[in-house]
Design a protein around this nucleic acid. Structure first.
Lengths: 214, 214
DNA sequence: CAATGAATAAATTCGTCATATATTCATTTA
DNA sequence: TAAATGAATATATGACGAATTTATTCATTG
């Protein structure tokens, strides 16, 4: 173990290149028609090297998508934190955090055609997609964290009196589902009205969870 | 194919029997594995008679589902009207109508496993389902009427000051989409928490569209 | 003349081979 | 000597025709 840092660093770089290439190829061709050879070439590694980072093509798909979802989530979480930082607790902080979370998540995806494409092709990526059963979500971990993030944001508002929601957990689940629809509407229709629909939806939701007196 | 629009009583009865049988079989086996012979037998008519009411198996599917959606919609519309009847305009009538509309639509589907099954099997039945494009909705007519019904209910509330919504058309579209999610969550998970999620969602929406002073 | 159901056309399944591509592993590299 | 390679191998996929099932038609019927 002469240089553990460089070793792990190189490994991470290679892994990143692999997942980026995988996202490109899976997005362009879908799971079936995507080729390991193509992915390996684009990542600048050999065919067999792929199997040092994933157990199978399916596993590579899962890891690459998880990598993409993680980046998306991290971006949204960061934006929410930054929005909350400038505000005093209770003085609209929960609203700011919640709204920033929604906006950042939405706009990040607008700039990530690969994830949109992949999710469009493969509805099973979302928990309650038709055909999937209870424990079926392959991204339970990421999606679960997203729902938890929403729930925390809502609870903060409820605690400070900014929000009035009877069941924050159920509300978070519902909003996550609603979020899926907005995404669908965005990538499926692409009629130029997405932004408007997003704003209309966000407005209703913000109003819907806000306490009357606030 | 003969004239499909001449509606004698016998024909209507036969048509109804055919569509009912078709809903049964399509729900049980899905479009592909459903057999015309099976449907005809259950409807008590001969094989060839089916083609007096539909141009093809695909057309029969479309007509049968449309028949089912029509019944669903009619039920919800009736419930909304009845709820509105007892209330003076402006004195909570819009709220009553809107809430009744949502509840009736939801509970009707809970009692109609065939429609749930069919929609579950065939996500393309809904306008913005993955894979479908702009003019792709085979049930544009029914779905369009549903959205219009929502929009009218919202506009009534806006006019009387009960609701505060910037863009009723966008809101109606959004709510219709949200409705799809509730349905998905209902028939996919069946974990006993549907009712709770429905109530949580309806509460946020009702609050979200309501005017602050109302 | 609406309705029928046997006749016909069309679609689907199944078995086989040919091709492509996912995966392994003996060898090389750094 | 652990990580990486890429040719070798196993597995999956696609193409094709025959066999079978199923959708659709239409001459006949009540």
């Amino acid at each position: 173990m002469t240089n553990l840092f460089i070793g792990s660093d190189r490994r991470t770089q290679k892994e990143t290149a692999l997942f980026e290439a995988a996202l490109d190829v899976f997005a362009e061709f879908g799971f079936r028609k995507a080729g390991i050879e193509d992915i390996a070439r684009r990542a600048g590694i050999a065919n067999g090297t792929v199997y040092l980072y994933a157990a199978s093509k399916r596993d590579l798909y899962k890891r690459a998508v998880e990598y993409g979802l993680d980046a998306w989530q991290a971006h949204a979480a960061k934006a929410a934190e930054e929005a909350a930082e400038g505000t005093e607790p209770g003085r609209g902080r929960a609203r700011n955090r919640f709204e920033a979370l929604c906006r950042a998540a939405y706009s990040y995806l607008a700039a990530e055609p690969r994830l949109r494409r992949i999710m469009s092709r493969d509805p099973s990526l979302f928990p309650a997609a038709p055909g999937s059963a209870e424990g079926d979500d392959p991204f339970e971990s990421v999606n679960g964290r997203s729902v938890a993030m929403l729930e925390r944001a809502i609870r903060e508002g409820v605690d400070t009196g900014e929000f009035a929601v009877e069941d924050p957990a159920a509300a978070a689940e519902l909003l996550f589902s609603l979020y899926r629809v907005m995404i669908e509407k965005t990538y499926v229709e692409e009629d130029g009205g997405e932004r408007k629909r997003f704003e209309a939806g966000l407005s209703i939701i913000m109003n819907g969870i806000s306490a009357r007196g606030a």
